[in-house]
Design a protein around this nucleic acid. Structure first.
Lengths: 193, 193
DNA sequence: CGCGACGTTGATTTGCCTCAACGATTGTGG
DNA sequence: CCACAATCGTTGAGGCAAATCAACGTCGCG
């Protein structure tokens, strides 16, 4: 159960046995059923969540009721409402399960103390955030300058494993287009091949 | 010259005199003239750059030759091509000066060593990145679900100081619309008030 | 002066959305 | 085990937000 996350951590930092013990002690395993909420917008985000098996998604529901997916998290990914987790403000995103999912969670207090107790985690988290920074910037640029068809092709090239596990209309939401339009794009691609 | 950056750092971490000395020793002051390049796409990003006075911008030029501004950096902001800075890969962004600008720069090697030499900086940088993470996510969502007019109004509300220093077509680029369309939006706003 | 950067305006086009209707599945309670 | 609802994808007609293209006026500056 905890081996994947230890491997994950080991890619960034080396822990001694004591540190491993402390780290493992703050992880709480939990399961979510498909469609079950991990976090509802407006609530305080109480956990940083690591996905062991399954798939979660974070999404924003705008005033018109349309929902916009900001992140998928499959195996070996982390997900949370960072703003709420840092500051205790009400979260703006919902997080729920795309399929039945097993996670390991770190409580908000433990998370905020973690960096003082085990300073090495500063390094790991900083490096994770730097990678996220880069991919966020790329996503912003791509959304600005690439047409819908190209964004779709990029997505399936990069996340082939996600594409097959998530309903098509959710991919459309992630890519910033309507499900009808994505359907149209796929038809044209199928016709010409 | 260095006081602003010390104040900046002090908002996140407390340095003793030795640490201050080390930190200051890796900062290189430099001036850029309006329109001068700080970094050209394809080159290796050699510096993390802190703006003391003036304004820089980072932008991506797409295959059609259109440029898309990903970030402005005015006083007290940092700017770089993070991917290139981390990994030494060719940068995808250009960075240049919107106006005459004074900066403090940290060389790529010093930057990568900084966290080992002065571990406190892990904490500071992690916290900076967490804030950036949140604002990137918000920008992604806003670009997906807000119409152009609203994005413009949000921008001038949040960055009134930037709006007055940067040519209008660059703001349009940052907001992901054409300069013609932004001009139209502004006319309508002016008419009805 | 003359050129380049900047903003504006209008005509036209287009990428994508809206709305509505329709099968195919899946799942679920009676 | 069936009936009915919910979820999901598809298709087409029509509409709109924003892009494109082209022309023009202004300003600052070498």
């Amino acid at each position: 159960m905890s081996q994947p996350i230890l491997d994950y951590v080991a890619r960034y930092i080396q822990l001694d046995e004591d540190e491993k013990k402390i780290f493992l002690s703050i992880l709480r395993p939990r399961k979510y059923l498909k469609r079950q909420f991990v976090l509802q917008a407006g609530d305080e985000c109480r956990y940083e969540t690591y996905v062991v098996k399954g798939c979660l998604k974070a999404y924003f529901v705008d005033p018109d009721g349309n929902s916009h997916i900001v992140q998928f998290a499959v195996e070996d990914w982390w997900i949370s409402d960072m703003d709420s987790l840092m500051n205790g403000t009400p979260s703006t995103f919902n997080i729920d399960a795309v399929e039945d999912t097993e996670v390991l969670q770190i409580d908000r207090n433990d998370f905020n103390n973690l960096f003082a107790r085990l300073p090495k985690f500063n390094t790991m988290y900083r490096m994770m955030l730097m990678k996220a920074f880069v991919s966020h910037q790329r996503r912003i640029v791509d959304n600005l300058c690439k047409p819908a068809k190209e964004r779709y092709l990029d997505f399936i090239a990069r996340y082939r494993n996600i594409e097959q596990r998530v309903p098509q209309h959710q991919i459309a939401s992630y890519l910033g287009m309507t499900p009808e339009f994505l359907s149209q794009i796929r038809r044209k691609l199928a016709d010409q091949s």
